[in-house]
Design a binder for these strands. Structure first.
Ligand SMILES: [Zn+2]
Ligand SMILES: [Zn+2]
Ligand SMILES: [Zn+2]
Ligand SMILES: [Zn+2]
Lengths: 133, 133
DNA sequence: TTACATGGTGTTATATTATAACAATTTAAA
DNA sequence: TTTAAATTGTTATAATATAACACCATGTAA
């Protein structure tokens, strides 16, 4: 059996920024995050980007690539930091993380023409959410 | 029966920029495109971005969101401008457009928890290409 | 023809997103 | 305790993208 990963606690900056993103009902952009944490002593873009990089790396948040924005993981602290799927409403910009066993199995097992398999992927679906339909 | 869409020819700027991207063996970034077309009279970022926007819209090129780069469509002038899939090598950055009937059918028919279907999506697989393995 | 709408162009300026480089400090192993 | 690794703070700058406005070309309707 594989050794369990130790749960590294977040550092101060990482915790501040994670809390903010986690509370947000929508994906947050880096400079909006910066604006919101300046009262807590985080003053420079780099401090934000460094925390974001780390949080993405450990799977606590994900980056919505098409929007340059960050959202907290809602798959119980994602086992699949590197295998993400989202739905994005093109009208109200609501973003939802998709957790479908079927989908993740299909994609994890997908082989391209060369027989190549990919454990890491990012999928973004676009459409209209319930409200906007 | 609906009127057939006329194939609007590309404008001068669009053609110049499409030709450049189409000839490139790798995805091109906007400012690299700009640099390469300045001798042809395209001098400002906006001229590039406007052409890129249009080319993306009509499906002649796709944007690789995780790389902020643009690649010509290789699915015979993509019927699926809005349903794209790519594999990306994390070492050499080689990008390949995936054209798999199985994959596109699966994704086009995928329903989320709310029964929502999405005709539009972008999927980026990450791994190592043949050479880099 | 003339008016008008649409889409493309050229231009300057500016906004937004992200990283380089360096010094200091904290943390966790060895 | 010594050392290595990670994190922080800071200033400056790079890279990506859009706003605003004037002008021009083309197609369509009055
Ligand atoms: Zn997740
Ligand atoms: Zn919506
Ligand atoms: Zn294509
Ligand atoms: Zn490679």
């Amino acid at each position: 059996m594989k050794t369990m990963h130790k749960e590294h606690p977040l550092t101060k900056n990482q915790q501040i920024i994670f809390d903010l993103i986690d509370k947000s009902p929508e994906p947050m952009k880096a400079y909006s995050i910066l604006f919101n944490v300046q009262k807590k002593g985080i003053k420079a873009p780099l401090q934000v980007y460094r925390a974001l990089d780390k949080l993405v790396e450990i799977g606590k948040i994900h980056k919505i690539e098409s929007r340059n924005a960050f959202i907290a993981c809602h798959n119980s602290s994602c086992q699949v930091a590197n295998a993400t799927a989202f739905s994005i409403c093109e009208v109200c910009e609501k973003v939802t993380e998709i957790s479908s066993v079927g989908l993740s199995k299909y994609l994890a097992n997908f082989k391209d023409k060369d027989g190549m398999k990919y454990s890491k992927y990012n999928l973004e679906f676009f459409g209209l959410c319930k409200k906007c339909r």
